[in-house]
């Protein structure tokens, strides 16, 4: 859409090409599936997986969220929207929601930023490039609970080297007691765990940029940073967009194990994310209705977030 307003030759050419291609390929597609059931047969396994592992539990969660249920499943009372009101009205829930938002922004921002930085630097290395890359990627092989355990040791009040380092600067770091200290430790471990993933994708994205484009850019612009911003970054946009969605999902859900290990299953005053609260209320507190309502809220948030991303952000991404 925005392309059309640019009078440059390169972007002006693209809409014409796009307009032409569907006309060519459509008859071919029809010819491939002349039997109407065949596509459904191909789709069936995937549809089955989605139904069993997504739609069915989602419907159950939505149903439970309107009931107050006995933990053992002996009886339930319909309470309408009470579970939602209780969750959204609670100061504790609002505090956790606020932290989750901040946590997601910081973890996504730092892990993508650092991943990109390392990828750009590693892309330039010529001597010993594979050993640098292996060193950077290997962290990705660590499972989240193990990463959490390592974080717990590094920030342990009695033996943690980070705590000693902070003490050296005159700061009394108390991970597990001080809210901000724990938040810092969690964000650090979560970012550290995710950087290699972003690194792999950014690196392969960089290597997919043709040498001719880079050489042309060098001729056009001598400033390295500007060249990166105006030529390389737009070409990385599809990778970055994909990573953005993956990283937000990671920060919202996959950091659960890191958090669980780091708070040693006693959250107390420590920051936790919404998904941890869902788990804590549902599986620890046996409050199934309240927990289901919270997970539905979370589901809606992620749905809206993803829609916004596709509606607003993807328009600005160039798929070369």
């Amino acid at each position: 859409m925005t392309d059309a307003t640019h009078p440059t030759a390169a972007s002006g050419a693209r809409p014409r090409r796009r307009a032409a291609s569907p006309a060519r390929s459509e008859p071919a597609k029809r010819a491939q599936f002349d039997r109407p059931l065949l596509p459904w047969a191909f789709l069936a396994p995937q549809l089955l997986v989605v139904c069993i592992f997504f739609y069915w539990p989602s419907v159950q969660a939505i149903t439970s969220s309107f009931y107050l249920e006995d933990p053992f499943g002996f009886g339930s009372t319909f309470v309408g929207l009470d579970n939602y009101k209780d969750a959204l009205g609670s100061a504790e829930y609002q505090r956790i929601a606020g932290f989750t938002a901040l946590f997601t922004v910081l973890v996504t921002g730092f892990s993508m930023g650092l991943g990109l930085l390392f990828a750009v630097k590693a892309d330039k290395v010529i001597r010993g490039r594979s050993s640098y890359r292996t060193a950077l990627i290997s962290v990705y092989a660590i499972a989240p609970p193990v990463a959490g355990l390592m974080g717990m040791m590094l920030f342990d009040q009695h033996i943690g080297p980070f705590v000693k380092l902070a003490a050296w600067f005159g700061y009394d770091m108390k991970v597990g007691i001080n809210y901000n200290d724990t938040a810092f430790a969690m964000i650090l471990v979560s970012v550290w765990k995710q950087v290699p993933y972003n690194f792999i994708f950014f690196l392969s994205g960089l290597q997919g940029i043709p040498a001719s484009v880079r050489e042309a850019a060098v001729i056009d612009c001598r400033n390295g940073f500007t060249r990166f911003r105006t030529a390389i970054l737009p070409l990385l946009a599809p990778t970055a967009f994909f990573l953005l969605i993956i990283n937000i999902t990671y920060a919202l859900f996959d950091t659960f194990a890191v958090i669980d290990v780091m708070v040693k299953d006693k959250p107390a005053n420590n920051p936790v994310t919404l998904v941890y609260k869902v788990y804590n209320d549902g599986f620890r507190g046996n409050d199934i209705g309240g927990s289901a309502a919270q997970s539905v809220i979370l589901m809606v948030v992620v749905l809206v977030l993803t829609l916004i991303q596709f509606r607003w952000l993807e328009r600005r991404v160039h798929y070369g």
Partner: peptide, 20 residues
């Protein structure tokens, strides 16, 4: 729901000692 009430207690005790 006493396990959940303990969670509230733990949170508030932490806050007391961190001066919040």
């Amino acid at each position: 729901f006493y396990p959940q009430i303990r969670v509230v207690e733990e949170r508030e005790f932490n806050k007391i000692f961190s001066g919040e």
